[in-house]
């Protein structure tokens, strides 16, 4: 039995999934990236090695997709938009709208007839994304897992400014001092964040059902309900909502391998190899590009970060 590996290296979490040949998730892993993607990838590979799967193909996505891709020898290295769209389509074929809220960014993908027709990502502000919710939950002394459930208990919700995390926070502090119950503040916050998302990321877009909500924040019941209220339609949260990027990457790898006939995956040995990332500033022009150098087992396997190609085009061992 062979499997397809998908890896989504994001700013907040690093996710691994294994799909069987039918595209069903048979194993998944959610790790915190904690600002050190290399460590998170190695840790995940270590866990994966315990399962000792036969990997037929591998794909990577997320902001760390390139790093992950060269480390494991990925067949596809794809952007998050495509990966999320592919996964949503595979699990919910009728999808026309994908709401995706992760740790640092939020995305909106519009599909028609199974093809992406438009998308948007938050540009200027991370209010409403996972890290902001994390922070606010900690400040209110509520475990993040309970945060959304708490919002459902509220009979009323208080009005919180949604445009900017700083405004939202000062509004919340004010309402706390006024004595509003925590659940009403939390419910108000969820509505504010949804309002912000729809006005900012969703501006000018037509959000039609079926609406799929994925990404780490989809775990939050308060956010789900706030979206349903704002959109006036049911919101579908797929079973593997938190690892959808990785699912998409694995599906793309499956297709790629079907096309090329063989996989570039380096094999499960990769879990035992020593990896090292270093950087230096190129002194050759005033642009001062920061060059990143990735070594595996002491050999340079990739370099990037330069504009002119002086470093990245140099032959490196593969």
């Amino acid at each position: 039995m062979g499997y397809y590996l998908g890896l989504d290296v994001g700013s907040v979490s690093t996710n691994f999934v294994l799909l069987d040949k039918e595209g069903k998730v048979v194993w998944d892993l959610y790790l915190r990236t904690e600002g050190r993607p290399l460590v998170a990838i190695e840790k995940g590979l270590g866990e994966l090695a315990k399962e000792n799967p036969k990997v037929l193909g591998a794909g990577t996505t997320g902001s760390g997709r390139k790093l992950a891709g060269v480390l494991i020898g990925a067949d596809v290295i794809k952007n998050e938009i495509t990966a999320h769209a592919v996964a949503a389509l595979a699990l919910v074929p009728s999808v026309q709208t994908v709401l995706e809220i992760g740790g640092q960014d939020s995305k909106l993908i519009i599909l028609r007839d199974g093809v992406v027709t438009d998308f948007a990502m938050n540009t200027v502000c991370a209010a409403g994304t996972g890290s902001f919710l994390d922070h606010q939950a900690a400040r209110l002394g509520v475990p993040i897992e309970e945060f959304g459930k708490l919002a459902l208990k509220a009979k009323e919700e208080v009005r919180i400014a949604g445009r900017c995390a700083v405004f939202a926070e000062s509004d919340m502090i004010h309402k706390q001092q006024m004595g509003y119950p925590t659940e009403e503040i939390v419910a108000g916050l969820c509505s504010a964040l949804v309002r912000n998302y729809l006005n900012n990321v969703g501006k000018g877009k037509e959000l039609l059902p079926t609406v799929v909500f994925q990404g780490g924040v989809a775990a939050n019941l308060g956010m789900r309900r706030a979206f349903e209220k704002a959109l006036g339609t049911k919101v579908v949260v797929p079973e593997y909502y938190s690892v959808m990027g990785a699912v998409g990457a694995a599906l793309l790898a499956k297709e790629e391998v079907a096309n090329t006939g063989r996989s570039k995956f380096k094999g499960m040995n990769v879990a035992n190899w020593e990896n090292e990332a270093g950087s230096f500033e190129c002194p050759h022009c005033p642009n001062q590009c920061e060059i990143v150098e990735i070594k595996q087992e002491g050999k340079v396997i990739a370099r990037w970060g330069d504009r002119c190609g002086r470093w990245s085009n140099v032959e490196v061992a593969v």
Partner: peptide, 21 residues
């Protein structure tokens, strides 16, 4: 660069998909 590259790649991906469709 990451943000820009992601958006450009996704946009080009999308255009190619639409073309093929």
């Amino acid at each position: 660069e990451a943000g820009l590259v992601t958006r450009l790649e996704a946009f080009v991906d999308m255009l190619l998909r639409q073309q093929r469709q």
